[in-house]
Computed example of a mutant assay.
Amino acid sequence: MRLGRAARITLGAVTALILVVIYLPLLVVLANSFSTSTSLSWPPPGFTLEWWGRAFQSAGALDAVGTSVAVAVVATAVALVLGTLISLALQRFAFFGRDAISLLVVLPIALPGIITGIALNNFFRTILGVPLSIWTVVIAHATFCIVTVFNNVIARLRRLGVNLEEASADLGAGVWTTFRLVTFPQLRSALLAGGLLAFALSFDEIIVTTFTAGSGVTTLPIFILNNMFRPNQAPIVAVIAVVLVVVSIVPIYLAQRLSGSEQTRR
């Protein structure tokens, strides 16, 4: 489709405006992390690296980072296993209710986070009767991390078809051997991309975490929320926010590169 000059200019202007609205606040946060002011003010009155040094020496911030990483790693591992198994079941087998199950698997990522958080909070405390802890956070994160793995793996399975797997079975290989030597090598990049996206999604999640974390569990987003309006903590929060943005961008960028490289090879 070819666009006229006026349409291209209009589309470019709208795109530039949207990008400015999205990324300008992030640049303001970055500038405030180097500001001499003790509050999130604009413009910054001066430049300093003091807040970066204090942020990396903050025991509470470091503990929050460790908690977020631990939760994200475990939730991603659970999502990789369950998401792959669900994808194989729904794509390779035909059974009654398959479409309904596929919808139920994808639904957690579409629901508002506050609805998911309230539902899981009631499930853990009322139905199961278990106290909220880091493990309830892991389970809660896994419910929506599974979706990212599921979408990546099932899309790859649809493109692969079953010819190679059937050929492996005809040559006498069992189900596990076929998966290990034929299916899994073709799914590795999809699994890696899905795992990176799941990690990023879990690492910066706050709404569901707020409803499913116990009083002693503080992830990095919760730490930011709790300290944002405390005296002299705003610049440190800005530093942590910048680090959180970078940590979130890296896995998303790698996942995009993996997906793009795979499409180019094909």
Rank of each mutant, 00 (worst) to 15 (best):
R2V: 14
G4P: 03
G4C: 05
A6N: 12
R8I: 10
R8L: 10
I9A: 13
V14P: 01
T15R: 05
A16H: 09
L19G: 05
V20D: 04
V21K: 08
V21N: 05
I22E: 03
L24Y: 13
S37V: 10
L40Y: 12
S41F: 00
F47K: 06
T48M: 03
T48C: 02
L49S: 12
L49P: 07
W52L: 05
R54P: 02
A55I: 09
S58W: 07
S58M: 04
G60W: 05
L62H: 03
V65Y: 12
V65E: 04
G66P: 05
G66Q: 13
T67E: 04
V74G: 03
A75S: 15
I86L: 15
L88M: 15
L90Q: 04
Q91V: 12
Q91D: 13
R92M: 06
F96K: 14
D99K: 11
S102G: 14
L104T: 07
L104S: 11
V105S: 04
L107M: 12
I109A: 14
I109G: 05
A110Y: 11
P112C: 02
P112F: 08
G113K: 01
I114D: 01
I114F: 04
N122G: 10
T126E: 12
I127D: 11
I127W: 10
G129K: 09
G129I: 07
L132Q: 03
I134C: 07
V138F: 04
V138W: 08
A142M: 09
T143L: 13
I146R: 06
F150E: 08
N151A: 11
L157M: 03
R158Y: 02
R159N: 14
L160I: 00
N163A: 15
E165S: 06
S168P: 07
S168L: 10
L171V: 09
G172T: 07
G174C: 01
G174Y: 04
V175F: 12
L181W: 08
V182C: 11
T183P: 00
P185V: 03
R188T: 12
L191P: 02
A193P: 07
G194H: 03
L197D: 01
F199P: 08
L201R: 15
D204A: 04
I207N: 03
I207Y: 03
I207S: 04
T209Y: 01
T209V: 11
F211I: 04
S215W: 10
T219P: 02
T219V: 09
M228R: 14
F229Y: 14
F229C: 06
N232E: 14
A234V: 06
L244K: 01
V245A: 15
V245D: 01
V246W: 09
S248T: 15
S248L: 05
P251F: 03
L258P: 09
S259L: 15
G260M: 06
E262Y: 00
Q263K: 14
Q263F: 11
R266W: 10
